[in-house]
Design a protein around this nucleic acid. Structure first.
Lengths: 408, 408
DNA sequence: CGCCTTTCGTCCATCCGAACAACAATCTCG
DNA sequence: CGAGATTGTTGTTCGGATGGACGAAAGGCG
């Protein structure tokens, strides 16, 4: 359930809000679901579910269908509930270190349209990137039906993002510090829509939890390998954010006190062993290809030995993470998924060696269920969040006829 | 708000349950509160609060008082709500490595009676400890009014406790492995009451969050120094448990790869630097006094230099924890509070050196607000938890006339 | 000291929304 | 084809939060 401010009482509007949001969350998650399933899942009365679905349908978010062909036992077949044909959508932005990916994502998580553009290496000025992103947003929104409402924009940033206001505190690979990127994009767009920013690893975790390898798993960690290394943590089914929103910065956990100098100023951070630069050096890959290390690794045919130590370092670091957070699943994203495919054995062994037995016995390592789209879809998910918290309010303030507004 | 199973709908019984529980939680937290304050805090109507308080009073949990003397401006003074004179209580058990502390704790968190007994070094057989604990429980319960209901028993264990069923997976300093200590205590008592077990650091964190140095702070970590070192994490106001309940095992984070051998089988764990045995060795304290290291440190008058390296190691380790969890507050419990008092400077400096600026700028180190009772009071808090989740049900199944039942 | 204002408790009617009961609809199975 | 099972639909009930009216108990002010 949505975490409302604790200590508060529940009034009847809150009940309705929560129930409408929960129905919508289920439809969003399953794509197609019957009213009978909803009654079972939510533990409410048939009549209540019927009423909730009716209200969502009148809001134009869902549609009721004739009973679907999939039958399951005797009895009258249940009416289906699915997302509306022309329903609300969001814009998801995945800011990488060398390119920006922007997508129009429908409620339900399908990418309808997508556009990509390179980002000057070293990030460049934030306003330039913002203008590039705004152009991509215009492009993906163009084809949207005029009647479809835009709920908001979700932006993934490879760096530390302050939770309270979305300020990018530090994005080392973009060379940004204290950049209000949300405002910059909005200014370049010339419209006012809700914008949510978050760390890339956090969003990868969210997406894998909702729609990827971690569906039904309430404690998982997504490790993003994206030049730097970060972790996004889902615990008890909710994002672990910490006081400022910076939780999960595992790239600078101490690893080898006598090791290499890290850009953070310390010596021997985990990132100096499993970061993209370290791996590139290990396999003799030129510096210029570091940003596309995943592709390089996918085609790597050199000696396994070159990566053995790296795999071991990855496993040892994961052991710390497993001990600290006790996840049921660890998803290796970015170039780490390519790396894991090459040295799975070394990683698994190192993890088993260093992790405590109790947390180790229930953990699984896995590749992303969403491929390289985890982060992008996570950005869509946070943009959808207000809709699940309060469907009526979110749809009330959503923007319609977006194509025309942005073109003008 | 209490985390109910996600995905569920909210029906009207759940609303009442939640609101009753929230009122009770506020009274429990504040001790004495006016109905006007409750309306403001919970955002409900005056009439609703009156009705909720009335129901709690008829359950015998709270009492209404004439308006208290503390005035605040004009207007009719508001009736007070306080805990009932003869109200429900719980038994809290803090299992240390050398002694067990048992207390009768009233709703509201006051320790009414307390009893202590030594535990044979090395823990001894679990059933022996269970019998000792049962004896202590009998003693503290004896004086309770016959009409007062016993809600349950909360037990703190220095080790890994499985969340699902409270099994003690591993308690190294008691030399226990897979011990169902809850059942053992119940069997020795001969009655059936709800029993909750949890890790000592988790309970320290809970108590400091509810009633100690972390009141109003939703992201905090309690580091327990109790021969071994563990962390309890509160994030977003709720306990971080992880998949099995083992989250927060930071004692075995890698620290010095060329360091000492740890009892977990690895080399250079943090615990080998800041664990009780390491500190005892550093200050030349005999092995037999390791279990009371806190007292030894309080009276320590030797050279500061002996502890300088330890302080630095503590700070470096805390930096990892701050980076990983981004807490607003870190409470140093057990002997670490004594240690911190001696080498505060070294710890602070080491933390500042290794932590990332963003998470570091908002974190504070502190001593426990509850002294050495944090863990004990945390055990009381988990035993109270069912009451806040559903007051009516919890009181319905509570045990009355406990003294006679246990004596017979 | 009396009056006004403010704030709160109490009592009532109201309203919202979930639950329930009864009946019709539509399937499976024998 | 009939019995049983499950669901949709509709009208009603009911729990519980809400809001207004009124009185009560304070403080502030002339």
């Amino acid at each position: 359930m949505t975490a409302q401010r604790r200590g508060l009482g529940t009034n009847q509007e809150a009940v309705r809000r929560h129930n409408l949001g929960t129905v919508l969350r289920h439809v969003h998650g399953a794509g197609q679901i019957s009213r009978a399933q909803l009654t079972a899942l939510m533990g409410l009365n048939r009549s209540t579910i019927a009423d909730l679905v009716l209200e969502l349908a009148s809001l134009g978010v869902v549609e009721q269908t004739v009973p679907t062909g999939v039958r399951s036992g005797a009895g009258r077949p249940s009416a289906g509930v699915r997302l509306a044909e022309v329903g609300p959508y969001v814009v998801a932005v995945d800011l990488g270190v060398d390119r920006a990916v922007v997508a129009r994502v429908a409620l339900g998580g399908d990418v309808i349209e997508r556009a990509t553009a390179p980002i000057p290496s070293g990030g460049g000025e934030a306003w330039q990137v913002g203008s590039t992103v705004a152009g991509l947003i215009r492009r993906v929104v163009e084809g949207a039906p005029a009647a479809a409402p835009l709920l908001g924009v979700g932006i993934s940033v490879p760096g530390l993002v302050r939770r309270s206001d979305g300020l990018v505190r530090l994005a080392p690979n973009l060379e940004w510090r204290d950049v209000s990127f949300g405002s910059i994009v909005l200014a370049a767009l010339g419209v006012d829509v809700p914008v949510q920013l978050a760390n890339d690893a956090d969003l990868g975790a969210l997406a894998e939890h909702r729609r990827g390898a971690g569906v039904g798993i309430d404690d998982l960690i997504y490790i993003s390998g994206n030049v730097g290394v970060g972790a996004g943590v889902i615990t008890g089914g909710v994002r672990l954010e910490g006081a400022g929103g910076y939780a999960g910065e595992v790239g600078h956990l101490p690893f080898a006190p006598e090791g290499r100098l890290c850009h953070c100023g310390n010596v021997g951070c985990w990132e100096t062993e499993v970061g993209a630069h370290a791996i590139a050096a290990a396999i003799g890959c030129p510096e210029s290809d570091v940003v596309t290390l995943g592709d390089v690794l996918d085609e790597y045919a050199g000696p396994q030995r070159a990566l053995g130590a790296t795999g071991k370092a990855l496993g040892y670091g994961l052991a710390s993470i497993v001990n600290a957070f006790n996840p049921r699943l660890v998803v290796l994203g970015g170039y780490l998924s390519s790396l894991y495919a090459l040295v799975r054995h070394e990683v698994d062994d190192a993890l088993a060696e260093r992790a405590l037995p109790a947390p180790h016995e229930s953990v699984t390592l896995s590749l992303p269920g969403l491929g390289s789209d985890s982060v992008l879809l996570g950005a869509a998910e946070i943009a959808l969040e207000p809709l699940f918290a309060d469907p009526v309010a979110a749809l009330g303030t959503a923007l319609v006829d977006v194509g025309a507004r942005l073109a003008g």
